[in-house]
Design a protein around this nucleic acid. Structure first.
Lengths: 256, 256
DNA sequence: CGCTGTGAAGCGATTCACAGCC
DNA sequence: GGCTGTGAATCGCTTCACAGCG
């Protein structure tokens, strides 16, 4: 995940494991690059290395899609691009709405990779009346009052939430009520959705915290020391979330 | 991711499983909210539901940290906040640099959750000389020529890459050479890094493609039909990445 | 011979279910 | 009685290793 599971209890979707589905876009990107360089075929070894996985995993992944390779030769690049695109549903058009046009929402609206692969930004939506009517990335911003009408008129089934955390659940509820069944959530909030609605979460702050954990471990390891043990519960150290300056167990920084 | 594995072969880091580490920030957020409401203790059931996981998983996760709960009662909120913060390394300050100050980089620079939990943006870096000297979110933008000096002067060990895909590997190499050992990559590129450097990837377009896959499945299921079978390799359908209009296997939209 | 496709083994994570303690 | 902490069972994913095919 990035991150954030919220899927139905990992039933294989049409026989394809979730972990495989998550890698298909990666393969597709690597294959598209090969295609642009007019490379006709590619071996599992080469493609795996381009996608940053190992070749056994890649072959296993492709085996779920069918037998699309040729033994002794490899995979036909164009053919595989087509098959993966089809499997991912990218041979059709997916209108999406972005709700919450702050810095991040605007960044996404401007993001090229958005439009490039079957995703069309049908509308930008914000609660601020001052923004309504303005254009961002050439797309007009609409007021959130019109949310249901926009979803309906454009047949939107995928929504992107880039509002502040406080507004996310409310926006989510309205999206779902209006017919959206897939949500990409950038707000730092756990969304509750009914059965049948998929949520994926992207959370910058969580990613950084995971990195910090490993970084701390590397630093501790480098000094041969363990991270110091915890005091017993109920003893001292209450209310020590952040901002107490000199907790200095470990130097603030320790580049390798 | 998030998403995107690139860690060393899932050796347990100090005995804590990677999957658990990835959930700690989630628990921390839920606990912080409880703390702000001055809730003194919380049961595994309540906390799990606030974090969007099940209680057995949460208890198992906490058991890796130690026995921080009280049977028959639950967990002390403040104490747990402290323990998780410490485990994640958030009791110290992590200076980070953001490289690539386009829409996304600027959005991140403005992102509050950044500063709130021990992460301090030491510098914004961009290759565009016109940006150098400007301020974004109150932080001056520096030219990429100074990258090494900035890393060094601030003891930065975490870098965030928000450049276009083409520049990402190059920037990554320079960050690593300058001493950065953890990278959060927003560019749509597979980064190659030496042993000991952690990379996490956030890729909007991949997340959307995963949602599209499930969305397509739901639609297919709703019509009782299967996704149509593939033509044999080497036959027709070459060069059909996108843009062939009427592939229309499935209606473009099908809200539940 | 080379490379794909895949059964089988290995491994980590999740879930179950209950013993242990407050 | 209530809720934590945890062995044991289970599940899904990854990796291995090689059979099968071009």
């Amino acid at each position: 995940m990035a991150t954030g599971r919220n899927h139905r209890p990992a039933t294989r979707s049409r026989g394809i494991p979730e972990a495989t589905v998550a890698r298909l876009p990666l393969y597709l990107r690597a294959l598209t690059a090969l295609s642009e360089r007019s490379v006709p075929t590619v071996s599992s070894e080469e493609l795996a290395s381009a996608a940053g996985v190992n070749s056994a995993k890649l072959r296993k992944d492709f085996s779920y899609l069918g037998s699309y390779g040729t033994r002794g030769v490899g995979y036909d690049v164009e053919y595989l691009v087509y098959q993966i695109s089809r499997e991912l549903g990218l041979t059709q058009d997916w209108p999406v709405v972005i709700v919450g046009i702050g810095n991040l929402g605007a960044a996404l609206a401007n993001y090229g990779g958005f439009a490039s692969r079957g995703f069309r930004v049908a509308a930008l939506i914000d609660a601020d009346p001052a923004l309504a009517g303005r254009q961002v990335a050439g797309i007009p911003v609409r007021h959130v009052d019109d949310l249901e009408a926009i979803i309906d008129a454009n047949g939107v089934s995928i929504g992107v939430i880039t509002t502040p955390g406080g507004a996310a659940q409310q926006v989510c509820d309205r999206l779902v009520a209006a017919g959206v069944t897939s949500i990409l959530n950038f707000a730092p909030t756990v969304l509750t959705v009914p059965e049948g609605v998929d949520v994926r979460k992207v959370d910058l702050s969580i990613e950084l915290q995971i990195l910090a954990f490993h970084e701390q471990r590397k630093a501790a390891e480098a000094m041969g020391g363990e991270v110091p043990e915890a005091p017993a519960p109920g003893s001292a150290a209450r209310g020590a979330g952040r901002e107490q300056g000199p907790e200095g167990d470990i130097p603030a920084v320790m580049p390798a």
